[in-house]
Design a protein around this nucleic acid. Structure first.
Lengths: 157, 157
DNA sequence: ATTGAATATGAAAACCATTATCAATAACGG
DNA sequence: CCGTTATTGATAATGGTTTTCATATTCAAT
């Protein structure tokens, strides 16, 4: 019973070993950061958070690991138009819910919303099916995003 | 009747002068390129096309002009995930139809589609209204895009 | 536990689309 | 035609992301 937490194999162990990848300190640290955050972290955000616990882990490794995690479909990569990529745990991983984003063009604030999602998904599925048939395109993913001004920026603008 | 084409004031004349902007050779050349192309040009694509006719026009001017045109809402700027921005004439300008994009992740091919658009627009409008009310967000625009593999890349993959 | 082979990492340099700088040029109202 | 002021081009700078390459780590086999 003692030492249970430390020695327990984390849920992602199989995902790595199964894919032929090694389970390194850096990769676990990065996944931990992503798992604890409420999202939209840039590579540098993640680097800084990881750096507090493991100062030896470099920014290059963060980039490389994120690329790997995206490829493994454990992480989603987003572009909110502010020149830096943003990352968050993929839907389903660690109970992450499907959601879309609302981005303030002025201050960069990002709101996750899950409202109206059901209808969106439904339409998306229909459209995907239609597009697959018409263009013989095998659709793997989609992006839906809204841009605008948040309440604060409307007042200050 | 003679010289009619050359001397006619182009449709965009008023848009510039009305906004306090000058109607320069570079700006007209860039608009011409955008108007003749069937879309998704990068800044460099545009620069090269313009360069054939006006070798003196530099890449910097192309970037600056595109920025201006986007701000004037005459041009849309897109990101298809290949590190370079893409531009096309805005909806309504020169009869451009509203459409969305289907992007091949493998070869970068982009297909415009107008099918299913009506339902998409309808849903988007509903969602926008809902989001405005719930989050007090003033929505200005949206992005909807599908990614996948085109028929060729499915075979070669 | 130790070892060896292959993967993963860090520091630094390279990349490359886009922006900023600044002196020279062009647009256009008068 | 002139003068004012926006616009431009060459060049340098920026900054997030990738490459490079020598070193360190993982982990299966011993």
């Amino acid at each position: 019973m003692f030492n249970r937490m430390q020695n327990q194999i984390p849920w992602w162990h199989g995902r790595f070993r199964g894919g032929g990848y090694r389970l390194t300190v850096a990769r676990q640290a990065i996944l931990n950061v992503l798992g604890k955050s409420d999202k939209h972290l840039s590579a540098e955000d993640i680097y800084l958070a990881v750096h507090k616990v493991y100062p030896a882990i470099g920014l290059t490794t963060v980039y490389r690991t994120l690329e790997l995690l995206v490829q493994m479909k454990m992480v989603f990569k987003f572009d909110f138009g502010d020149k830096r990529a943003r990352y968050e745990l993929a839907e389903g991983v660690q109970g992450t819910k499907h959601h879309h984003h609302l981005v303030c063009s002025a201050c960069g604030r990002i709101i996750n919303y899950t409202d109206f999602i059901d209808k969106e998904i439904e339409l998306l599925n229909q459209t995907e099916k239609g597009l697959q048939e018409k263009f013989n395109f095998k659709i793997t993913n989609h992006i839906i995003q809204f841009y605008g001004l948040c309440d604060k920026c409307q007042k200050n603008g």
